[in-house]
Design a protein around this nucleic acid. Structure first.
Lengths: 232, 232
DNA sequence: CGGCCGTTTGAATTGTTTCAAGCTATGTGG
DNA sequence: CCACATAGCTTGAAACAATTCAAACGGCCG
């Protein structure tokens, strides 16, 4: 990956968005590159947190395993997203495992390098706080959903959020361009694979969705999904 | 409230913990003081976020109202806790309403003053990020609980967390020293008042708790509660 | 072709909510 | 100081949403 490509990635990252070109260049130069194959992990929950990552291309699923062995999906992450930084800043072990759902390329900074960057460029610290605030808001919204809404609404809202982040327009509707299993949706919404399957089957019958049997989901009638996600 | 008292409060606040005395003094001097009566709010969800608050004494309940009118309790806050800052930094409206469950005294800084403080004392920014990280961890843990555990475990875990934050040892056990209603617990755990009442009634019958009918809760057998919160 | 993994679907079960009623301290006004 | 209203809590019974259990299906890869 050459320097121009790296700068392009850094530029797109929310952490660096809007910063002056020389800051971007410095950030890009000090980064390492890492490729993670589909199915492999960037790091593991419980590892000591020593590096910051930004997704250049590809897609990660951030998994958290509970003490009693259950798994929840915290979020999917794509180009521009920051991975691992919260744990590095807090000096705590990584609290979750990012797994590549497709081949993924990342930029990597050590704790020390990122510290230097942030000390040299104070706006970076502000950006970082902003991003963390965004995560807090997102988590509060999800908590509210899981705590108060029934499963159907949560599934609808989750599909819409993913579509908003990663969806691509096609003739048939908005497509989610990666393998998103029923199990994944179940672990994002706090329900079971079976309930997700039943719910999606219903929506497919109504023509709201397409995508039986592990083909990519396509949302044919987004407006209807929004209604479901907002229904009393 | 005199200067020494303010410094004592600032010192106790997680945001300022461990910073040099002159920083504390400067922070304490630039703060305003605000008293909020029991039942009153510090600000309202949706208000423009212009001030940072630290609880000096008293206790707040942080409420969030959903678009469809339901209420959830995000957390209780006591002395040393920081209120409102995430919204101020992000320049978004306050996302929740802090309500005083007893008379509460706060220190207040305007956005501008806090900015000056943080620019003058860079470690403050690091502390702030650390605190936000802590909130993220807490929210992830709660999300995991609500998504995977059944109600009884969530109620047990919630009571234990509150007891850990605010509990006082008495002869009978650990007392939660403020009015914590069944409704509050329901809104923290994502269940109904009725289920909480039934569950607590059961525990009171087993001698795990005391506190029927709106008297303060006392945890007589904390270890048993821990077992419940961890049971398969 | 055969095995496997993710998915689908039915039926039984259950945890939790909803509905409904009554209870008990606490406070208020006569 | 007592009747009365109120707010929060308790408890039973019925209803229900979602899970669990069970079985079978369909693509796909080796």
């Amino acid at each position: 990956m050459d320097k121009t490509a790296r700068i392009a990635i850094v530029e797109r990252a929310k952490l660096f968005a809007g910063l002056p070109p020389e800051t971007l260049a410095e950030a890009a130069e000090t980064a390492q590159v890492r490729v993670v194959d589909k199915g492999d992990v960037v790091f593991r929950q419980g590892d000591e947190a020593g590096h910051h990552f930004i997704v250049a291309w590809g897609r990660l699923r951030l998994d958290q395993t509970t003490p009693d062995g259950k798994n929840i999906v915290l979020r999917f992450m794509g180009p521009g997203d920051l991975v691992g930084s919260v744990a590095v800043w807090r000096k705590v072990p990584y609290p979750a495992t990012p797994l590549a759902v497709e081949e993924t390329r990342l930029l990597v900074w050590s704790d020390a390098r990122m510290m230097e960057l942030m000390q040299a460029h104070p706006p970076l610290a502000m950006k970082a706080m902003n991003m963390m605030g965004g995560r807090i808001e997102e988590l509060q919204e999800r908590l509210q959903q899981v705590a108060t809404q029934q499963v159907e609404r949560r599934i609808a809202a989750t599909i819409l959020k993913i579509a908003g982040q990663s969806g691509r327009k096609t003739e048939a509707g908005v497509e989610i361009p990666f393998a998103l299993s029923r199990q994944d949706l179940a672990e994002m919404t706090g329900t079971t694979l079976h309930t997700v399957s039943r719910t999606l089957s219903g929506w497919i019958d109504e023509g709201i969705l397409e995508g039986r049997r592990s083909s990519h989901l396509v949302i044919c009638r987004p407006h209807r999904l929004v209604e479901i996600s907002e229904q009393a």
